[in-house]
Amino acid sequence: MTIDILYFAWVRERIGLPRETVETQAATVAQLVEELRAREDRYEVAFADLSALRVAVDQDLAEFDAPLDGVREVAFFPPMTGG
């Protein structure tokens, strides 16, 4: 399946991209992260500590064990600092 992946704040800076489209067979967000980490060092660096990251699936906050079935967009970012 094809999924759009978005990166924000320092995750975007470490990976060097705001978004990309990937072809993946990952069943969960965690499996998608493993696929990305295996690609290149910059992904390994960005995803080194998952406790420092948050994920949104189709624009709703989610957990790393969230399923990807039917999902179109996944976003990775640090804890939010609005207000």
């Binding site: 640090p78 939010m80 600092t81 609005g82 207000g83």
Partner: peptide, 14 residues
């Protein structure tokens, strides 16, 4: 609204 906005709305400050 403020409490939730600070940690649940996707904004990041630099």
């Amino acid at each position: 609204l403020m409490d939730y906005l600070k940690s649940r709305a996707p904004f990041w400050k630099k």
